[in-house]
Design a binder for these strands. Structure first.
Lengths: 234, 234
DNA sequence: AAAACTGTTAACAAAATGTAAAAACACTCA
DNA sequence: TGAGTGTTTTTACATTTTGTTAACAGTTTT
């Protein structure tokens, strides 16, 4: 069950085999990919379908790829990623100057292509960036931007270092973090190995996030190691 | 004489020779480039200076580059371009997943680097737009070109610096701005770290925008860090 | 059971902040 | 020029917030 509509991508690529490969890989990663193999149709298709991102091969039959990019850019605001075998710095510079947002040279590791697509979408989508930086763990929501934390949509007040500590734990959810690591990350100075202030701070923090120290659900103690933030807790 | 302020870039690179080369090339293309060669200082520098783009080498001495990226991303919204000799798809995917916007492998053609920087700024930087556009936050409306501020459609009077301060906060809504940054941005001179005039100005400003200092809704104090303008406030 | 580790409280110290009031500054206008 | 006006900075102090430590109770490991 998926309430979030898939992101629509248009893949302008004439090599059938490659197009299919990319299509399948991206589809498997929850994108809605359509393929266009003729350069003459790309502009029309883009304007009609307004995909959230365009992947553009430069070597299409029909209209020249760089020209497509240049023509379409003024009318199309979503990211354009050029994916091409043309490994030329000049083409790359031209492509970017014509308004492309990224230029990836074939053959490319699919994971790299995916990561770059995501980076572009994250940057382009006003909520995307938020979605990236806002940490959500069921009833607990952390907004690093405004240094705000919510529990059941209720804002709670944390001190600066408490917030920092929680953020670091949450950002590394599921990973055990040593006192030393936490101390350095929060206070930006060396840890002498005796200091208990992290313990105290954890104790306070648990209170604030309504976590019972005797049986913590969110911030668990890993005896002899440190603390770990549990993703699954409510 | 140049009325348009240059775009400020922070170049985190430890190879002195290369740093100088990149610096000179970008400076020649009208960027204001500063260099940081130690990984441990990058986060602090970025948060204090808020460059419009960060160029990050992964091989800095001190803190690990990928960790820097990951740590800084939640607090820093401008683009991060990783520039590194590490030609590994895995590193590239990681870097992008950690929030970098681009990943360029050294050695890179300076023209390519420049084109990619411009592409990132073009997509991200509505600065030119910001300066023109009316900023609306529910009942609070700021018209930069008229230097006018309205609350509930009622014009309010602010002094020059108060207006400046409010504008800077509002333009960076959701981002915590340090006293140092605010001081430099408003007064255009160095901050000695002791000056309290920003605090006083904030205090005045809160009065003018009808914000209760004991429980501010619009201009929040982030203890030990600075101030942040809250978008969602009425 | 001893040793090592953790949780928590309270007390104090230290740091950061809010703001009133005074002083310094800048500008206008007669 | 100098009084008048408004703005900005500085100073000073009250207040708030936070960090640290010690102490002790409780828990886990060996």
């Amino acid at each position: 069950m998926n309430n979030i509509p898939q992101t629509r991508l248009l893949l302008a690529e004439d090599d059938q085999r490659l197009a299919q490969l990319v299509h399948d890989f991206l589809a498997a990663n929850d994108f809605d990919v359509t393929i266009e193999s003729n350069g003459n149709n790309v502009i029309r298709r883009v304007m009609a379908e307004l995909p959230q991102l365009l992947i553009l091969d430069l070597g299409l039959p029909g209209k020249n790829g760089l020209d497509i990019c240049k023509e379409i850019r003024p009318h199309y605001t979503s990211p354009i990623l050029i994916l091409t075998a043309r490994n030329s710095d000049t083409d790359q510079v031209l492509g970017l100057e014509y308004g492309a947002d990224d230029y990836v040279i074939k053959p490319a590791d699919p994971r790299v292509l995916l990561a770059r697509i995501k980076a572009l979408l994250r940057r382009n989508n006003p909520d995307g960036l938020n979605a990236q930086t806002t940490l959500r763990f069921n009833s607990l929501v952390i907004q690093p931007q405004q240094r705000q934390v919510f529990i059941d949509n209720q804002a709670i007040t944390l001190s600066s270092h408490e917030f920092e500590l929680l953020s670091i734990l949450a950002q590394n959810a599921g990973q055990v973090l040593s006192r030393e690591y936490l101390f350095k990350a929060v206070y930006h100075r060396e840890y002498d190995g005796l200091d208990r202030s992290i313990d105290v701070r954890i104790s306070q923090l648990r209170k604030h996030v309504q976590d019972d120290s005797d049986n913590p659900a969110r911030i668990k103690t890993v005896w002899g190691r440190g603390y770990v933030f549990v993703k699954e807790a409510w």
